[in-house]
Each structure stands twice: as C-alpha cells, then as structure tokens.
Design a protein around this nucleic acid. Structure first.
Length: 554
RNA sequence: GCCCCUGUAGCUCAGGGGAUAGAGCACCGCCCUCCGGAGGCGGGAGCGAAGGUUCGAAUCCUUCCAGGGGCACCA
C-alpha cells in the first residue's frame, strides 16, 4: 500500500458515497487527495486532511465527514484501522501485509522504481551551463551543470522526453576580446586592457600555435581570425571534456553563429513585426517588451544593423519551439536574473505562455570555502575556480551531491574541507556508505547461499516498527521524484536519500538480517533480505538521479 | 531608486497551509560475543520584526529590518 494507492482508495470512497447519495460534492470528486506521513507515530502510518478540505463544500462538519469516510475506508483491503483526530484528520494504519508488499514491488521494478507518468508526453528542452568559450567553466556554471543534469534525469524518470542543450556563444565582442588576448599571448605581448588573463589563455595560445605554426606570420586580421577559430574550438573541446568528466553530456550544442548566418534572427524579427510587437526608434529596431511586463522596451537590431544579444535569444527560442519543444527551460545564475523579465516578455510577444512554454530557473551564487575562508576569484587575475578545480578538490560524486542537495534559491557555501572528508560529516558519504553496507549484506547472503524471498514472500513478516518505517520511506520515493520534477527541485531527492539511509541504519540496528552463526535461515531472514535489496535499489536509483555513483564497496 | 533571492538550533541546511517545526555536524551521557561503529539510543537549544488572510501560517499577502545578487543599442 503506497500513498498513491491510498489516495486512490480515498477518492474511490468519496466517489462511492457521492454515488450512493450520502455525500454531496458540488465541484465533483477530486482526482487525488493529500496523503502524508504524520510526524508523530500516534497519528498512524498515513494521514489525510481531505475531510477538512471538503467539509465546507459538502455542507458537513469536518468530523462528520471524516467519520463517514472512515467507515467507508475501513472496508478497504490493506487498511487496518482509520482513526479520526483533531479537527477532522483521518489517521490511517496500514496492515503489515499491505505495507510489506512494497519491498517486493521495489525489487520487481528494479532500476525503474521511482518512475511515474507525471510528465508523460512532454517534450522538454533543458538549456544550461552555456558558458562562453572564452575560458573554463567556473564555479557559477557548475551549479547548473549538476542541478540541470539532475533535473533532466528526474524529468526523464517522470516520463518526459528530455533534450539537454548547450547554447554555444561564438558570436560577438567577448569572443573578439578572447581572440585578441590569445594573439597577444602568442606574440608575448601584454594582454589587452579588456582582455582575458590567466594561465589557460597562454596554454590555449600555445595550442593554437601548435596547430597553426604559420599563424603569427599572417597579417594581423587573418592571424586574429585563426586564433579566434582555433582558440574557440580548443576551448570548447576543453569545456565539453570537463562536462563529460563531470557526468554531463549534452544532446545539442547550439552555435549562436548559426542563428545569424542562417537568417533565423531575421525570421524571428519578421514574425514579431507581423505580430505588431516591434517599432523603429533612433535608427534601431525595438521589441515591445514593456507591453508584456518588462521594465522597458529592448533593442533587437542595433543602429549599426547588427542584431543585439536579445535578437539571438529570440531566434533561438523560436527555433526550439519550431523543433517541437512544449517546455523550454533556461537555467541561469543569479547575476542574470535581470534577463528574466525581457525573456518572458519576448515569449509573450510570440504569443506563447511565459512560465509554461518558457521557464527560466535562477540559481543563486555558489561560494567555495577552504579553511573557513571564502575563495575569492577574479577572472581578470586568472584566479578562477573551475569545474576541474572543484572535481580535483573533492571528486565528482561529492561535487555533484554538494551542488545538488541545496535549494537553488539559496546561496551556498561549499566547504571543500568538509566535502573532501571521508566521514559521516559528509552527507554524500553517509548515503553512499549506506548503499555499500546494503551491498555488503547482499554479498554476504550470497556467500551463505541465501537468496531474498521470492514468490513465497510473506509481506506480513516485516512487521517490526523499524521495518514499517523503512517500508514507508521506500514507498515515498516515486512521490519524491514527482515532486522534484514538478517543483524543479532536485535537492528533494538528496534529502530524501539521507532520510532513507537513516531509516535503514535504524532498521539494521534492531533487525538482524542474516542468520547468526550456524542458525538455520528462516523466511524472516529472507524477507528482510528482500527489504535490504529494495532499499539498496532505492538508494542506487536516487543517487543515479543526482548523477552520483552508488558504490558496492567503499 | 527599481528588481530577484535569502533570513529556521551554536554551525550548515530541510520543511510545496495542517497536529508536539526536523536532519547532519558540534556539545554532553550511553550502546559493540557474530551481518561494514563511516552505525544506533538519549539530552539541551530555533521560525528576523510587526500586521493581515485562514478552522489552522515557518509556509500565502503587506510593510519594515538585515545579508547576497542584479539593473547596457556588452555578450
């Protein structure tokens, strides 16, 4: 009996009573009701506030409605007891048999356990990282590398068709400054005032020269073009590799240059003009974003005839929509939040629905801390903390978990000393350790020739309080994944894993799994082994959603 | 000036309107004859402030205070 099944049972009870004429619901029977795990054990295994919610509409007192529902529900298979508490909560106690069955369900589903159809049929485009190829990915971009990829995995688990996309910005002034910096470095000249500094610039310049030894003999303009093309190519390859090593691979790398050369910008501008959302002023073409809630209108074609940065975004958005994506996500750092207004206005100007067809997620800043001191970084001084630095300091698993376990809305400090530690202070080790411990029990069972319970599994054997707690935790997993998808909050999965690991340790502490000494194996041993297997699967699936490994041994 | 995020235990953070607000760490006291003690059990301590909506608010609304980040015909 899972919370979802319980919700269905309650809905069915409501429907039956409406059918029988003993209950009137003018707005109809809800399709699902809130079923939660009460904090206190005295309140049963599950509780619902449905009577409190529907009382007014039904024209009954909450407690009367609760009583009517309790009578109906008590007849449901798998429900042991229904109590009415407080203002009208229904506290439901599930029978051990119905509860224990979850273990078998998890094992049967295997790697698919946790999946749902919450986003079935949705085509989702996730654009994230999209760092300019003018340098390595720094710490700001890493947050979304971890969280965006996790969100993609979560959406996939909830039935969506996900495309990960990287907007590769190879057009405009920053690239020009990058190529000038490379050229200067190759010539041994000082980096230009507004250029890029740091070791990587010298490295890339050297690599360009290795590829094109003739570059410095070319006329200045041609040389700069060589450094631009080769430098961007090398930088981009490096970025891709860093991301790949981080466990993040994109389905589409979209080059901004394409938009300008293919006429996509022109087409997008024409579309907006047809819709009456552009006008000319001061020799530039403006988009009426203010009409759609932005602070002010924005230039899309500059006085010099070049498209503005926004023009690329317009064309890119239109392109995604034309490629059939119902939902386009863009994930940005807090320093970009000022774009949200114009991007949403742009979306509306196309006749789309902001917040649905286009969603912009803002992740707050990440600070790295070492020895209690924040690592201050400066791009100019070349003291940039990159994705590779982070991985080198704490490893991919810790990095992804550290970035993934906090709400994107909160600014986070990542303590490199803490996350590098192989101890229980470090949450990722707490969860991975639980997984390794589970794997170890299963290995030991294998050595004993003991297999988890199969078709003969009697769920009612798992009747210990700690077993019930653990089973209820396992039953939560699909809801946690669905909530993480709906709220775009992968950190919920991480927190859930920590709770579940804790439930497991508590279970393990008071429930002996394997036979002691030369004790004869019983059905209880085998039932518990099934529960161990189920728990291991849930932890592995959850870690997988975060892009973190689930080690068999540590 | 305007916009966004945040303010919960000593610290780092969870808490999608529900019952007695949680976890880890830190601190104090316990628990190993056998499955991984990287574990478990117990203890103290908290919702920035004031109003409002609600049967019910850490959660929703308003104002204020504090911290962080933004406000280009740059990309």
């Amino acid at each position: 009996m899972t919370p979802a099944q319980l919700s269905d049972a309650i809905v069915a009870t409501l429907a039956a009573q409406v059918e029988a004429g003993t209950l009137r619901l003018p707005d109809g029977v809800p399709s699902e009701v809130v079923v939660e795990r009460p904090r206190s054990k005295e309140h049963g295994d599950y509780a619902t506030n449905v009577a409190l919610k529907l009382a007014k509409r039904a024209g009954m007192s909450p407690r009367d409605l609760a009583q009517a529902l309790a009578d109906g529900l008590a007849a449901t298979d798998g429900i042991e007891r229904v109590d009415i508490a407080g203002p009208g909560f229904l506290n439901i106690t599930v029978s051990a048999g119905a509860q224990g069955k979850v273990a078998a369900d998890v094992v049967a589903a295997g790697t698919a356990y946790g999946a749902s159809d919450a986003f079935a049929g949705e085509r989702i485009n996730l654009e994230f990282v999209s760092a300019n190829p003018t340098g390595p990915i720094h710490i700001g971009g890493v947050r979304w590398a971890a969280v965006g990829d996790a969100l993609g995995r979560i959406f996939t688990m909830t039935g969506a068709q996900v495309t990960r996309e990287y907007y590769f910005n190879d057009h405009g002034g920053q690239i020009d400054r990058f190529s000038s910096s490379l050229l200067a470095s190759a010539k041994g000249e000082p980096i230009p005032e507004d250029g890029y500094g740091g070791q990587y610039v010298d490295d890339i310049a050297k690599d360009v020269l290795a590829r094109r030894p003739d570059a410095l003999d070319l006329p200045e303009d041609e040389a700069r073009e060589v450094f631009r093309a080769e430098g961007v190519d090398l930088m981009f390859a490096e970025i891709k590799k860093s991301l790949h090593d981080f466990g993040v691979d994109f389905d589409v790398y979209f080059h901004e240059d394409n938009l300008h050369t293919s006429g996509a910008v022109k087409r997008a501008v024409e579309r907006l003009t047809e819709l009456g959302n552009t006008y000319e002023k001061d020799g530039a073409l403006w988009l009426r974003t203010e009409k759609y809630g932005d602070d002010k209108d924005r230039v899309i074609i500059k006085r010099d005839g070049e498209g503005s940065y926004l023009s690329g975004d317009l064309a890119y958005y239109l392109d995604k929509r034309e490629r059939g994506f119902d939902r386009c996500f863009i994930m940005l750092g807090a320093d970009h939040h000022g774009y949200v207004g114009r991007m949403m206005a742009m979306c509306a100007a196309f006749g789309d629905v902001p917040g649905k067809n286009l969603e912009i997620l803002i992740g707050q800043m990440v600070n790295l801390v070492r020895d209690g001191q924040p690592l201050r970084m400066s791009k100019r001084a070349g003291t940039v903390v990159t994705i590779d630095d982070l991985v080198e300091a704490i490893g991919v698993d810790a990095a992804r978990y550290a970035l993934g376990r906090f709400s994107s809305d909160s600014t986070i400090d990542i303590d490199l000393d803490l996350w590098a530690r192989q101890s229980s202070d470090n949450p990722v080790f707490y969860v991975q350790y639980a997984h390794a411990r589970l794997a170890s029990i299963l290995r030991n069972a294998g050595d004993l020739g003991l297999a988890p319970a199969g078709d003969d599994f009697d769920p009612a054997l798992l009747s210990h309080e700690r077993e019930g707690d653990l089973l209820r935790a396992l039953a939560e997993f699909p809801r946690v994944v669905a909530a993480a998808a709906q709220l775009r909050e992968p950190h919920r999965v991480a927190r859930y894993l920590e709770d579940t690991a804790s439930s497991f340790h508590k279970f393990y502490d008071s429930c002996r799994v394997l036979p002691m000494g030369d004790e004869e194996p019983t059905d209880l041993h085998r039932a518990r082994l099934l529960l161990v297997d189920a728990t291991r699967i849930v932890l592995a699936n959850g870690l997988g959603l975060l892009g973190v490994s689930a080690p068999e041994r540590m």
